[in-house]
Design a protein around this nucleic acid. Structure first.
Lengths: 192, 192
DNA sequence: CCAACATACGGAACATTGTTCCGTTTGCCA
DNA sequence: TGGCAAACGGAACAATGTTCCGTATGTTGG
């Protein structure tokens, strides 16, 4: 398909650059698991055996690195939306199940929920990616449930995602059951 | 051990120390308003016209300073609990109104909601104070509503406060209505 | 009122972490 | 293989929290 249409025709990176990018991704993924997404840049660099400059060259902001590491899982979550809507008994059930997927994803990534709503400029990309990818899906589920008269109308997908994301913060505290809180929140959407 | 009783018998601080503590409190309160509770220590010191050492001497951690600044308001919120319970038409209404007070307090303090659930050791004191002061009040309201059969049983006050606090994060974003989200959350507590 | 001492102060110095920049190395292609 | 652009490494710089100690000052006994 040519590839040199509107795309800037990526001139194929050098072999060492490609290798380092992969190494970095793996090192970052491992570091995120053990130390959360706030792990110091130097630690990731050390684990990957590269200099910090190399990280910044490949991933200008922390958000770029986080997005790269979790892209697959976010895509999977996004794609599950329409499927759930088709399978489930009711739009509200589909919405609840989809939110469950989202929550399961968030609570297993130490520090991600916090980063998701940080207003730090470095997380701009993270915001943009999650929102671009998930808002349309969320909107579809929300619209379906609203049209079926199962939930309140006029709830913005952005607000729902943000609220759910917020509720997932601190999910590693054994005294705080984020999944349950989100469940209550979703229950509050119902019309009585 | 003498030490005269259980009270440590404060030996009355020096005049300049008392003066600085007051100045610091005022400077911090002003700085919190304009730059949030994460304002750099140096900025507070500069605004108060003292050295950073003086801040650390009076308020060893940022949490101590935050608690000192907001103590009155937290007390007022705590004391409003029983009053609301006595006045309101139903325990659930009282709970909702009390939560509204709490939310109003939180959303007007830039960065406080975030700080409230940070697991940073420096915020230990903040956690402890809010929890010690508000959990009993919340528990009373929760118990009353549960006994009246208005809400689900077995909800820990800690979880409710944490959930509400979480929902208040990012309340300065015009696209996110924290009050409304909390309202939905509280609605989700009801038995149907 | 003065001297002496404990208290409190100021801010330099150090630690941590993010970010930039440039001299050096290395892959790639002619 | 020679040369050049790409990529690298890590020193250097910036922002902030935190500690420490020489200095200044309030307080008190005489």
């Amino acid at each position: 398909m040519a590839d040199d249409g509107s795309a800037p025709a990526a001139p194929r990176k050098r072999a060492d650059a490609r290798r380092n990018e992969k190494t970095l991704l793996e090192a970052a993924a491992a570091a995120f698991v053990t130390s959360g997404v706030d792990v110091p840049v130097r630690d990731i660099a050390a684990k990957a055996g590269v200099g910090v400059g190399t990280i910044y060259r490949h991933f200008p902001t922390r958000a770029d690195l986080i997005v790269a590491v979790y892209r697959h899982q976010v895509e999977a979550c996004a794609e599950a939306g329409p499927a759930l809507l088709a399978e489930s008994s009711s739009p509200h059930a589909a919405l609840a199940q989809w939110i469950d997927l989202f929550v399961d994803f968030l609570v297993t990534k130490h520090g991600l929920a916090e980063a998701l709503q940080s207003d730090d400029a470095a997380f701009q990309t993270l915001h943009a990616y999650f929102l671009d990818r998930l808002i349309p899906v969320c909107a579809q589920l929300l619209d379906a449930a609203a049209e079926a008269g199962e939930i309140i109308p006029d709830l913005e997908p952005f607000e729902l995602l943000r609220g759910v994301g917020n509720l997932c913060i601190g999910a590693d505290n054994p005294r705080y059951d984020a999944r349950r809180m989100v469940g209550l929140f979703i229950a509050g959407l119902r019309l009585h």
